[in-house]
């Protein structure tokens, strides 16, 4: 990768944008249809809805934000950030589960 070049030079094609767009439309339709098709409890709804949202986010970051075709610097930056982000959210989820609930560890 020529990091000193003026601008990135990978070939740029509109068809990628259209393909990802139609994929995102499909996933958005799924998002909207889920409550109509199946009535889930809160936990399952969150898993389905956030699953679709993370899939959409992956395609947006990979293709619309060009991480797929970026230099290794950007790829590593994003991977590191995503890992740290999940660690932070994981810790928060554990804390949420054990606080002010029937599972509370701090209040007997």
């Amino acid at each position: 990768m020529n990091t000193n070049s003026n601008q990135e030079s990978h070939p740029i094609n509109a068809s990628v944008y259209y393909n990802v767009f139609f994929l995102l439309i499909g996933l958005t339709v799924l998002t909207l249809l889920q409550p109509v098709i199946i009535n889930l409890d809160l936990g399952s709804t969150l898993i389905v809805q956030l699953g679709i949202a993370f899939t959409k986010a992956f395609f947006i970051v990979a293709y619309y934000m060009h991480i797929k075709s970026s230099s290794p610097l950007f790829k590593k930056l994003i991977y590191t950030t995503v890992v740290l982000w999940f660690v932070l959210y994981g810790l928060m989820a554990i804390d949420t589960y054990y606080r002010y609930t029937p599972n509370d560890l701090f209040n007997n």
């Binding site: 998002t31 909207l32 409550p35 809160l42 709804t45 969150l46 809805q49 956030l50 679709i52």
Partner: peptide, 8 residues
């Protein structure tokens, strides 16, 4: 959008 509008 899903977190606010679709968790019902």
């Amino acid at each position: 959008f899903p977190l606010f509008y679709l968790i019902y």
